[in-house]
Computed example of a mutant assay.
Amino acid sequence: MTEVLVAAATALWLGVLTSISPCPLATNITAISYIGRRIDNTRHVLLAGLLYTIGRVAAYVGLASLLLQTALSVPSVAQFLQKYMHLILGPTLVLVGMFLLGLIELRFGGQGLSESVKQRVDRLGIWGALLLGVLFALAFCPTSAALFFGNIVASLTVGSTVLLPMLYGVGTALPVLGFALLIALGSKKLGETFNAITATERWVRTGTGCIVLLVGCLLTIQALLQ
């Protein structure tokens, strides 16, 4: 039970960390701009923020479930994971920690939406926030890809195909939901809050990276000694 709670809290935190990292933050700024268009309508802003969150959660849970169920449905793969999962988790966390610390760098394609997709989102009205959440969740960049893969491995370890991806998705949308709330309340602290988040992101990412790397090393050593 304790292992599941720790994994759940970690998944939520890594989701938040993903959302404030430079690459995903760019898409979240776009989402905030879209959600805040109707700043005069508090209910509209809050509902759009909620729909965006649901879209991200649905995308991550759906993709994780598809990957996990596909892997577990193949007997040879399931047996391999059951036998060697304890050996995989440690090195996976080491790689994720190195990535967060900038020791490993990857470059993916651009994150922008095509003009036709933007028009389709606009035509959906408030429901466009739901589609936007799905699209931005699936527009993986190095940070989100590494952390999402880490959550996939952790999900296999704790035997959950829904909980960890769901919490990770909630975490990635929490800052946008928070900004939607600030917009709805007409907060004058919006700019200051955004600047504070971007200023602390590097230190938060470095601290988390050190912890993840340390835990990964310890699990790896423990697995090798067994």
Rank of each mutant, 00 (worst) to 15 (best):
Q111G: 12
Q111M: 06
S114Y: 05
S114G: 15
S114V: 09
S114I: 03
E115V: 12
E115P: 04
E115H: 10
V117Y: 04
V117K: 07
K118M: 12
K118T: 10
Q119N: 10
Q119E: 12
Q119M: 09
R120Q: 08
D122E: 15
D122V: 07
R123I: 01
L124A: 07
L124Y: 03
L124V: 00
G125R: 05
G125L: 07
I126G: 02
I126W: 01
I126F: 02
A129V: 04
L130I: 01
L130K: 01
L130S: 00
L131I: 05
L131E: 04
L132W: 00
G133K: 02
V134A: 08
V134K: 02
F136Q: 10
F136H: 10
L138D: 04
A139S: 15
F140K: 08
F140D: 09
C141N: 12
P142M: 11
T143L: 13
S144L: 09
S144K: 05
A145Q: 06
A145D: 06
A146L: 10
L147T: 11
F148M: 09
F148K: 05
F149K: 00
G150E: 01
I152Q: 06
I152P: 01
V153L: 08
A154W: 01
A154D: 00
S155F: 00
L156E: 03
L156Y: 05
T157R: 13
T157M: 13
T157Y: 15
T157A: 14
V158I: 11
V158L: 04
G159T: 06
G159E: 02
S160T: 14
T161H: 10
T161L: 13
V162L: 14
L163T: 13
L164C: 09
P165Y: 08
P165F: 05
M166V: 11
L167P: 05
V170F: 13
V170R: 02
G171D: 01
G171W: 01
G171I: 05
T172N: 07
T172R: 03
A173W: 01
L174C: 00
P175R: 04
P175G: 09
P175M: 09
P175D: 06
V176M: 06
V176A: 09
L177W: 07
F179S: 08
F179N: 06
A180V: 08
L181N: 02
L182E: 08
L182Q: 10
L182K: 06
L182M: 15
I183P: 03
A184W: 00
L185W: 12
L185G: 15
G186L: 04
G186Q: 10
G186Y: 05
S187E: 09
S187P: 07
K189H: 14
K189D: 14
L190C: 04
G191P: 02
G191W: 05
G191S: 13
F194V: 12
A196P: 07
A196W: 15
A196R: 15
A196S: 14
I197Q: 07
T198W: 02
A199C: 00
T200V: 15
T200L: 15
E201Q: 15
E201Y: 13
R202N: 10
R202V: 11
R202A: 13
V204Q: 11
V204P: 04
R205D: 04
T206M: 12
T206V: 13
